[in-house]
């Protein structure tokens, strides 16, 4: 294996990991705040991809407006899903909410299939087909966009969570919902905002995936959704830097397994890493060990 080969594979791993990280962020935010595994998250990503596709092909928008429209539309969708399906269940068992999430996931998948048919759709060329040579490594214009969008959105998110009122409120709610409510925080609005932001991030990932790999279909969200969940858990679910780390670890693991010639074991490798990490450090890579109160 030459150095050039390794560098190229590393780059692929980072670009793949960025996408996982972007989806994982939404997962982890929602989990952090209401401890719900939102299985419909991957499907929100799919809807985002379709909105982006519609904007580009039918409304002839350029990339950035299409991306923003998709994010906006999915933010709305996320809020609606939360209000309709999850909010009534906030007081019941976690499993009931989980099953509802699974139901929502099926609903989005097959509702979309009903509307747009299962036919695979493609984007017209959105990015310039430029290819850059950085030393021995080939970098596509699309790679740069993916990594850039991911970095920008993550930075924005971190800033929002750290320094804005709503971010503070989110942290407060995630720490203790009841205490936050007593302090005058409108918990419902905070949760809605979390869903809106998480879903917008998923939509961004959906458009990026759609444009980069140029195939979108109603079931495209299932596997990335599951992988992103793995990434979120790997990094420590509920922790924003954890999602980024988890996504990168996952992307690099997959690329590594493929590069050594076991491409069909790729997903198995990803899950195995997950199980091993969980056994060694049950709360994920960046998770803190919380002592359970009696």
């Amino acid at each position: 294996m030459s150095a050039e080969f390794i560098l190229q594979q590393l780059l692929i791993g980072i670009s793949l990991g960025s996408i996982y990280a972007l989806i994982a962020l939404g997962y982890t935010m929602v989990y952090g705040i209401i401890q719900l595994i939102n299985f419909a998250h991957g499907d929100v990503m799919m809807v985002g991809a379709y909105v982006g596709w519609y904007c580009v092909t039918s409304l002839h928008m350029p990339f950035l407006p299409a991306l923003l429209t998709a994010m906006l539309a999915c933010a709305l969708l996320g809020v609606v899903i939360e209000r309709v399906a999850y909010k009534p269940l906030r007081k019941s068992t976690r499993l009931a909410a989980l099953i509802t999430a699974i139901g929502m996931s099926f609903f989005l998948e097959y509702g979309m299939m009903f509307i747009v048919s299962p036919q695979t759709r493609t984007f017209p060329p959105v990015f310039p087909q430029t290819i850059y040579h950085i030393g021995p490594v080939i970098v596509k214009y699309g790679d740069i966009v993916i990594i850039a969008v991911t970095v920008v959105l993550m930075t924005l998110l971190t800033l929002v969570v750290k320094y804005t009122r709503i971010g503070k409120a989110m942290r407060a709610v995630s720490f203790d919902k009841d205490a936050a409510a007593l302090m005058g925080i409108n918990v419902n609005n905070v949760i809605s905002a979390t869903f809106a932001i998480g879903s917008a991030l998923a939509a961004a990932a959906g458009v990026l995936v759609g444009v980069y790999y140029n195939t979108i279909g109603p079931l495209m969200g299932i596997m990335p959704g599951l992988k992103a969940f793995v990434a979120a858990v790997l990094g420590g679910i509920g922790i924003i830097p954890g999602a980024m780390l988890g996504g990168l670890v996952l992307g690099l693991t997959e690329v590594f397994v493929s590069a050594i010639g076991f491409s069909t074991w790729r997903d198995a490798g990803a899950f195995l890493i997950l199980i091993i990490v969980l056994i060694v450090k049950p709360t994920g890579l960046l998770g803190r060990n919380t002592r359970e109160k009696v």
Partner: peptide, 14 residues
């Protein structure tokens, strides 16, 4: 690869 995989870049490098 497995049908439905989106990313073939690692095996293409190989």
């Amino acid at each position: 690869f497995s049908a439905g995989d989106t990313d073939f870049r690692p095996i293409i490098e190989n």
